[in-house]
């Protein structure tokens, strides 16, 4: 133990009195995760509808999308979407200025890659949710004269969204953790900031334990919110929600395997 090299005061200083750049990193992690998750949900719904289309070639297109974006590791996707595309001279991300904010190239690539990846997972979740809704709901919607779009909008989707809430919470947790990969394309979110601080101080152990603590805090808050939302909706559960839970309890859809 003669070589023990721990700087306890450093640790507590950074834990309880974090520098602004660290807080900014946390904020960036949350906001990137939130934006990418939102886009992933929208994209996922779209891919799910492709996947369930009447037309075989749209279904195949949906399948292909899911196959690619679930099959290729997120890290590889990130590097292709940012570094690879630039290296090949295919595309250069221009800065996008929205009011006081500037969305840098790496940020655009990050959000794009995370959203595309997430859409593939959300698509499968939405598909499972929609197929656990009884066909009678759709029949009844058509029988009151709803067009397919109106039936989707007012009958099928509201039920699907409720069904999707528990797995969505899981997805968001995975998303927060997934943002740590963004450091590879130079984004200073939580993980990237810790790396940067580490390069200046070499207090690797202390800093990465602090990173771990921050991730745990974020994930715990998420879990807390999710529990309350689920409790709210469980007051009267839809038959489709029960179907869904029965069907997917034993499967990986709700678990954290990835």
């Amino acid at each position: 133990m003669g070589n023990l090299n721990l700087d306890i005061p450093f640790f507590f200083e950074y834990l309880f009195n974090p520098p602004d750049i660290l807080l900014y990193g946390v904020w960036l992690t949350i906001s990137i995760a939130f934006v990418a998750q939102t886009l992933g949900v929208i994209g996922g719904l779209f891919v799910a509808l492709l996947r369930m289309s009447q037309r075989w070639w749209l279904r195949e297109l949906g399948k292909l999308y899911i196959w690619i974006f679930r099959g290729v590791p997120l890290l590889v996707q990130l590097v292709i979407v940012y570094t690879g595309v630039a290296a090949a001279g295919l595309y250069k991300y221009p800065d996008i200025v929205i009011g006081p904010f500037t969305l840098s190239g790496p940020m655009q690539a990050a959000i794009l890659a995370l959203s595309l990846h997430e859409a593939a997972y959300m698509a499968e979740i939405f598909r499972a949710a929609i197929s656990s809704i009884d066909r009678g709901q759709f029949d009844a919607a058509r029988a009151v004269g709803m067009s397919p779009f109106t039936a989707m909008r007012w009958i099928i989707l509201p039920q699907a969204i409720r069904i999707v809430i528990p797995p969505l919470g899981n997805e968001f947790t995975l998303m927060i953790k997934g943002t740590s990969l963004l450091a590879i394309i130079g984004i200073r979110e939580l993980f990237g900031t810790i790396q940067q601080l580490n390069a200046a101080t070499f207090r690797t152990f202390e800093l990465f334990v602090i990173a771990a603590i921050w991730y745990l805090i974020l994930i715990t808050i998420m879990g807390f919110i999710q529990k309350h939302v689920e409790a709210y909706y469980s007051k009267h559960e839809l038959p489709a929600e029960q179907n869904f839970k029965k069907k997917y309890k034993s499967r990986n859809l709700l678990s954290n395997n990835r």
């Binding site: 009678g136 709901q137 029949d139 039920q159 839809l238």
Partner: peptide, 14 residues
């Protein structure tokens, strides 16, 4: 113009 009532009711459950 055509109302329909089903054996299993099919009320919109949400």
């Amino acid at each position: 113009n055509i109302g329909m009532v089903f054996q299993k009711f099919n009320l919109f459950s949400h």
